[in-house]
């Protein structure tokens, strides 16, 4: 067993309207910034112990499937790093 951090990034599927991101973009533009687009995402950092990185990733994927993401509107990606001991 080793310590891992699985970082799950949950974002809206391409094409799904993101009113909060649009509002944020407009606020940046009001501050004088120039930008073409803005996408936001939720990021979950899951510290866990697992046999190996693949086991940590599959546990994180199950968490994403069962709660962290809604498959109707979200895609997610997972990155696993070994925590410094």
């Amino acid at each position: 067993m080793a310590a891992y951090t699985a970082t799950v990034t949950v974002r809206l599927k391409r094409g799904v309207l993101d009113p909060e991101a649009e509002t944020t973009q407009r606020a940046l533009e009001r501050l004088g910034f120039e930008l073409n687009d803005l996408r936001s995402a939720d990021r979950f950092e899951l510290d866990m112990r697992a046999d190996d990185a693949a086991a940590a990733e599959s546990r994180a994927a199950e968490m994403a499937d069962r709660l962290l993401a809604n498959p109707t509107i979200h895609d997610y990606e997972i990155e696993v790093t070994e925590a410094p001991s």
């Binding site: 993101d18 009113p19 909060e20 509107i73």
Partner: peptide, 10 residues
């Protein structure tokens, strides 16, 4: 089916 998410108006 489906999902209910943030209003267009935010």
């Amino acid at each position: 089916p489906g999902a209910f998410t943030t209003n267009r108006s935010a």
